[in-house]
Design a protein around this nucleic acid. Structure first.
Lengths: 166, 166
DNA sequence: CTTGGAAAGTCAACATCGCTGACATAACTT
DNA sequence: AAGTTATGTCAGCGATGTTGACTTTCCAAG
């Protein structure tokens, strides 16, 4: 940015040292990111996997098991174990599809919505504090870098969520 | 909110919807962040925990087990299992402390450095691509938000690494 | 020199959450 | 009727985290 080559930017932000710092920042920040929900969930019968399922069912009500499998990137056996407990304990309702009766459309019950809110409140509170501390311009950059870091297929999933969720 | 309160910024970036998108961005980006090393490690006898240990030993050669425990935030039993295999297979050397012979100072062997390089090359390649795509200003914002998201104690650990590693 | 406590290592047991493989059921599609 | 898809389930395994209890080593303080 200070000089004028064709690819004219200052590339100091691409040094190995800068990249390593970015890697470590991701590591430590992700710990913070999951810390609050983890604390809330410990003691309940649930874990991080339940949180993720509840989050995305909240985000896309009526989504199918297949959809959720794609978004979460786990095996159906792994997801099934989680969904089963959520359904048994009345947090999630699985409605048989009208058009295709093989499909299960997933919805949060009132109880499920309550858990989602508690978890999401905690996570958003941390996010909000970080956003506020860093400012809107930093937030825009944060989102840009994270999007660029995703696998293309996951980026599409993510962007699909953005549209439907807006 | 496009108006002029004393703390007069546009606060649209703090809506729940924006925060949720940030949360999902972290989730999907972290998947990408760990994908390449995970792929490399699968098939070897090692996993993500080994990667983390190797990374931070590389970053702070001669660090003690206690130090590493603090940075990684796991129990000594969990770390010990990882370190034992790394030492057995000749990737890490544990030197008894000179001043305090109870301490083990950890170093990567040549073989350990090789693995570190392979993993780190892959992870940095993704990071570099993301940084390049987003640009230096976005990177600065990315780092600011991540730092603000860390637990204070972890932020100190992170900043300590920055200094010593520069 | 003895004792207390810190650092490290080890053993056993367990929980969560990934995985594979195999199989069953139901229902849509051709 | 046959093939495919979506889902569910059982059994078993692996990686990585946890607690609790215990030992060994060794510095440091009395």
């Amino acid at each position: 940015m200070a000089d004028q080559t064709p690819s004219g930017e200052n590339l100091l932000f691409l040094t190995d040292e800068q990249l390593r710092k970015g890697i470590e920042a991701m590591f430590f920040a992700y710990r913070g990111f999951t810390a609050d929900p983890d604390r809330i969930l410990e003691g309940m019968d649930y874990g991080r996997a339940h949180h993720r399922a509840v989050h995305f069912i909240h985000r896309s009500p009526g989504t199918t098991v297949s959809n959720l499998l794609t978004i979460l990137g786990v095996t159906k056996q792994s997801l099934n174990r989680v969904l089963r407990t959520l359904i048994e304990e009345g947090l999630v309702e699985a409605r048989v599809g009208r058009r295709d009766k093989r499909e299960r459309h997933l919805h949060l019950t009132t109880k499920g919505q309550e858990l989602e809110r508690v978890l999401s409140d905690a996570q958003r509170a941390r996010m909000r504090a970080a956003y506020r501390a860093a400012g809107p311009q930093a937030v825009a950059g944060f989102r840009q870098v994270l999007e660029a870091m995703m696998d293309p297929e996951l980026r599409r999933q993510y962007q699909g969520l953005k549209e439907s969720g807006a």
